[in-house]
Computed example of a mutant assay.
Amino acid sequence: MNKAQLIDSVQEILGGDTSKRAAAEALDAVLKAITKGVKKGPVQLIGFGTFKPVERAARMGRNPRKPEIEVEIKASKTVRFVASSALKDSL
Rank of each mutant, 00 (worst) to 15 (best):
I13R: 06
Q11F: 09
L87W: 11
G15M: 04
V71W: 09
F51S: 00
E12L: 11
S9E: 04
A86I: 06
K39E: 12
E55H: 05
K66P: 14
D89V: 10
E55K: 02
K32D: 15
A26Q: 03
R62W: 09
K66Y: 15
V38T: 10
L14K: 09
K39F: 07
G41A: 06
K52W: 07
D8L: 00
D89G: 11
G15A: 02
V79G: 00
I34C: 10
A33C: 11
K20L: 00
I73Y: 10
V30S: 02
R80I: 03
Q5H: 13
D17C: 09
S90W: 12
D8G: 01
N63S: 05
K39S: 12
M1V: 13
N63Y: 11
L87A: 06
L31T: 09
L6C: 12
E25P: 02
Q11E: 06
S84W: 00
D28E: 10
M60G: 13
L45F: 02
T78S: 05
A75F: 04
D89I: 04
G61M: 07
V71P: 12
Q11H: 12
R80N: 02
V54H: 04
Q5M: 11
L6E: 04
K39W: 02
S85I: 03
E72D: 15
P53E: 05
F51Y: 06
I69A: 15
R56V: 03
A83G: 07
I69Q: 15
K52A: 15
T35R: 01
D17P: 03
K88P: 13
A33R: 12
S84G: 12
E70F: 07
M60T: 15
A22G: 02
I69G: 13
M1R: 06
E55Y: 08
P42V: 14
A24N: 10
I46V: 15
L91P: 08
